[in-house]
Design a binder for these strands. Structure first.
Lengths: 142, 142
DNA sequence: CTACACCTTCCCATCATGGGAAGGTCAAGA
DNA sequence: TCTTGACCTTCCCATGATGGGAAGGTGTAG
């Protein structure tokens, strides 16, 4: 099948399929006489694997490792678990960082009246680096 | 002061200061006779503002908007709040997405024994797109 | 025969950041 | 004074994953 059909069948865009081939994640697809890439059911299967791993946030490098393990029928599940656990830890770290940002932002947004006046704790914080975000300034906010 | 000192004083790298100038986030710094950029306390103040906004995850475009509002002493706080709230919503969306990924990963990692055997629910899931991740397959795991 | 949809390769853009080269400048020490 | 090392300058390239789009070839249906 053509790349467009493989893309539709796998959920991975044709653009990305070519890209994955270019960076060596996928073996170069065989070509027809017209130089069109030719895919089979096996390739679609592999592309689905990749697409699903991407949805789980695995990087290309991680996916390359997972693909190799997937192809190796005798791999120890330990290897797979290690890759996945490392990725999970990574995501959890990033979630924690973003939650910290979100918490600060929520405080600031909550403290800002958002009306016609210029007074704005958000800018005050950005400016000064959070000098006592409450009390003192929050004496009834005039 | 030189760009290096401004960088040290603001926590924004010299590389980034030049970049911010190049993309128009900062007004071009005045130059000395030797063509070195020359910064003052005001610039450091502005750089700190930018650095802090970056730590809160604001994009360059958002920071440009915030800087403009910051400079405008008569801005309505509504404008600032709108930018911050939109950014917060964006972060919250991304957190939710990552939490969804993390939850799936935790399930998979938890279901994988991680030993010498090849059996691995993680690969099974990536392969098939989560065909009943438990029951059936989880009959005591042999 | 003519559209039109598809394929090919190649280049560019994103976003924020850093690495590094090639070359100019300055200050301190021998 | 000369050297050395730490600065500064600009310019190009890389990241990671994805998409846009151009220029040109191919296949198919009307």
């Amino acid at each position: 099948m053509n790349i467009g059909e493989a893309a539709a069948a796998s959920g991975v865009s044709a653009k990305m399929i070519r890209h994955y081939e270019a960076i060596g994640l996928l073996r170069p697809a065989p070509r027809r006489e017209n130089s069109y890439r030719d895919y089979g059911g096996h390739d679609v299967h592999e592309l689905r694997f990749i697409g699903r791993a991407r949805k789980l946030g695995f990087s290309i490098d991680e996916i390359a490792a997972l693909l190799a393990l997937w192809r190796d029928k005798k791999r120890p599940s330990r290897e797979v678990k290690r890759v996945a656990a490392a990725h999970l830890a990574d995501i959890e770290t990033r979630i924690a960082e973003m939650q910290s940002m979100a918490a600060s932002l929520r405080d600031l947004v909550g403290a800002c009246r958002g009306d016609d006046r210029a007074e704005c704790p958000i800018l005050n914080d950005l400016e000064g680096g959070a000098k006592r975000p409450d009390s003192a300034r929050r004496r009834r906010l005039m």
